[in-house]
């Protein structure tokens, strides 16, 4: 046994010059890891703790602890203002809720339509050029994924003005990266033999795509799209905070006017919507797989 395997370090000692036939003497000390890895681990943990303490101090350099100490009374105050939720406000929430649903659905649709070509350009086995096209496609995916939909909405509201359209475009732009990444991974995981077999019949590139690859990624495609729709419902409930339409607009307005009973009503509606969309997406994905 070599020391390369840290889990099974042989700790038997054989006296120099003893013959193989003699009984061995085994060490009574057994360690899980070699001293070297243990040291490295301790250093790693210590570094993490030190980093944490340092970050904590930097972060809280400007924290007003007076406000923090004040929290219990603030929380109690807020809680008493929010309860009971104003149920009479509910009917007013239906139109923005419809908008929210549309933002999520149309945004997902747009995002998926744009993500499909990007995914095929990004997958190693379907891209026209690994050196040139693939990096561009990957960059599109990374850009879309790194920027939260709320920031996309912020940008779009600044550009094309507040409203549902900004929300739809924001959701679509954010979805490209998510759908594109998962889809291109699915494309790369397709069974190469099936593709080879279609190629061997004399099929053209588009036909190989259509017969060899698309059927294989179809379940993944539907699963990813529905999953993203679920996430988008969740995200589109808050896009209104920056003016991109939907129920978030009402939330923003209620917070600005300190109408706390309305705020709690809106939160309940958002919670119900999110749970409902999660249930729908789970059902649909279950039906597909």
């Amino acid at each position: 046994m070599s020391d390369a395997n840290p889990f099974y370090r042989e700790t038997s000692h054989r006296k120099p010059g003893s013959r193989p036939g003699e009984p061995r003497h085994y060490s009574q000390i057994w360690t899980f890891r070699t001293p070297h890895t243990r040291l490295a681990m301790w250093v790693g943990w210590l570094a993490l703790v030190a980093l944490f303490v340092y970050c904590w101090q930097v972060m809280n350099a400007n924290t007003m602890w007076v406000f923090v100490n004040d929290t219990p009374s603030q929380a109690a105050d807020l809680g008493s203002r929010m309860l009971p939720p104003s149920l009479g406000y509910l009917p007013e929430l239906l139109p923005p809720l419809w908008d929210t649903l549309n933002i999520a659905t149309l945004g997902t649709l747009g995002g998926v339509i744009m993500a499909v070509p990007v995914a095929f350009l990004a997958a190693r086995n379907t891209t026209p050029s690994i050196a040139f096209v693939r990096p561009i496609a990957l960059f599109i995916i990374v850009t879309s994924r790194s920027i939260n939909s709320l920031i996309w909405a912020l940008l779009l509201v600044a550009m094309i003005g507040p409203g549902i359209l900004a929300g739809i475009v924001a959701i679509a732009l954010r979805s490209i990266g998510f759908v594109g990444k998962l889809l291109y991974e699915a494309i790369e995981e397709t069974d190469a033999r099936q593709i080879e077999a279609v190629t061997a019949t004399g099929a053209g590139r588009a036909q190989v795509l259509n017969y060899g690859i698309v059927p294989q990624v179809m379940p993944a495609f539907w699963g990813i799209s529905v999953f993203r729709w679920d996430i988008n419902i969740r995200e589109s409930t808050i896009l209104g905070l920056v003016g991109a339409g939907g129920i978030g607009l009402k939330l923003q307005a209620s917070i600005n006017t300190l109408a706390w009973p309305q705020v709690s009503t809106i939160l309940i509606v958002i919670l119900a919507t999110v749970i409902f969309s999660e249930w729908v997406s789970a059902r649909v994905r279950h039906a597909i797989l």
């Binding site: 809280n60 400007n62 924290t63 007003m64 406000f67 603030q74 808050i238 905070l241 999110v274």
Partner: peptide, 23 residues
């Protein structure tokens, strides 16, 4: 089920502006 941004709104209201609420 509560999103970060909504939690943040409340925590900012309770703990005041700044990174501590974000944390």
């Amino acid at each position: 089920s509560l999103q970060e941004i909504i939690i943040a709104i409340f925590l900012v209201a309770m703990f005041g502006f700044g990174p501590f609420a974000g944390f």
